[in-house]
């Protein structure tokens, strides 16, 4: 029994030994759970730059941002990827990022540039839209909803499942979509009517889509309308496990709300030079062409060919609903509180 404290000291040393290997050859990307990159693209980056890319996933978008905020000034990584326009104000107010204007930004449409000081760089966009189960509507001879107005009518009673905006990123985007649609004066009454129409509110995307939505493959859910992404129909095709002629689900294009995902160099990064190279790389044609099938989002770089599944099955809404990051930042927490009172209490 005497030897145990010694073992504990040994353990601590071993732990510490595993801690820092910091020789400027490694660049660390702090990001959320949905981040993905294909192996060949990752290897190309490492070959071109001579750097090793270490990926640190810190929970969903909100959780990962929290970690970055907690460790501001002494960050866990060099680059943070995954803050979106809905949470951008929090990141900027928290003084998380160093400014960096990548030369690759020339090829990015200006509408994606959300910060004039270039503290954040747009990497991809994905729209949060209502998805419908096509088979469900076809078998009942009912027309799918065309927009928000339909959802509060009695024909679409008990058909919709949404996420709680207090706990879910797409849930927040959907709330913002209704605010963009109906304005500060109208959104609350729309939600009151939706509540009377028996909307189902769940905590996160996983439960809404995989357990409650009837259109997800293998699901026993009974709600044929769900809040998800514009890229969910092509994902259903790619991950069907067999060839499909048509996507089993479709997007209600008039309900789409734009989400832009951004990256930034963390203030106090150990490898700032590497961080810049990583940002440049994330805007390069190779990485941008990879994002549709690895993360199921759309590239921000112009002239990048979409994969055939996206060409055929994805809807890129011409004019998605939008709110400026400043407006969202100033009102987000109040809107969520009010929504909670209206829909949950």
């Amino acid at each position: 029994m005497r030897r145990l404290p010694l073992a504990l000291v040994g353990l601590c040393l071993a732990l510490a030994g595993c801690g820092g290997d910091d020789d400027g050859r490694e660049v660390v990307l702090l990001t959320h759970d949905s981040f993905a990159i294909s192996k060949p693209v990752l290897r190309a980056f490492e070959r071109e730059t001579g750097l090793t890319l270490r990926i640190l996933q810190g929970g969903d978008a909100g959780e990962a941002l929290n970690r970055a905020q907690l460790t501001v000034g002494n960050p866990e990584g060099d680059v943070f990827f995954g803050v979106d326009n809905n949470l951008l104000s929090r990141a900027l107010d928290g003084d998380l990022f160093e400014a960096y204007a990548s030369p690759e930004l020339e090829r990015v449409n200006e509408s994606y540039l959300l910060d004039e000081q270039h503290r954040v760089t747009p990497i991809d966009h994905g729209e949060v839209c209502l998805n419908i189960d096509r088979g469900w509507f076809a078998s009942r001879g009912l027309d799918p909803p065309r927009g928000f107005d339909d959802l509060v009518t009695s024909r679409y009673r008990r058909l919709l499942v949404v996420q709680n905006p207090a706990t879910s990123t797409p849930g927040l985007a959907f709330l913002l979509a209704t605010i963009a649609q109906y304005g500060e004066d109208g959104w609350a009454s729309w939600w009151r009517r939706l509540r009377e129409n028996d909307v189902l509110v769940v905590d996160g995307w996983e439960e809404a889509y995989t357990a409650r939505f009837s259109g997800a493959s293998g699901s026993r859910g009974d709600r044929p309308i769900v809040v998800s992404y514009a890229s969910s129909p092509p994902a259903e095709v790619v991950f069907a496990g067999r060839p499909l002629e048509e996507a089993p689900t479709a997007v209600v294009a008039s309900t789409c709300f734009r989400q832009v995902e951004l990256a930034g160099i963390l203030r106090g990064a150990r490898n700032e030079e590497g961080a810049r190279k990583l940002i440049d790389f994330m805007l390069s044609p190779a990485f941008q062409a990879d994002v549709p099938l690895s993360m199921f989002v759309f590239p921000v770089r112009e002239g990048v060919r979409l994969p055939p599944e996206f060409e055929r099955f994805a809807v890129v809404p011409a004019r998605p609903l939008e709110l400026s990051p400043q407006v969202i930042g100033a009102n987000r927490d109040r809107w969520i509180r009010e929504w909670t009172e209206i829909v949950l209490r």
Binding site: D33, S34, G58, E63, T210, S217, S232
Partner: peptide, 29 residues
């Protein structure tokens, strides 16, 4: 675990959660 597991060292529950976070029959399966 999900908070501290390295992405290149996932555990089974972490991997399950990552699959559930994506649409499609193959991921659910």
């Amino acid at each position: 675990t999900v908070f501290i597991a390295r992405s290149d060292w996932p555990t089974v529950p972490v991997a399950i959660f990552r699959f559930l976070g994506r649409p499609g029959a193959v991921n659910a399966g």
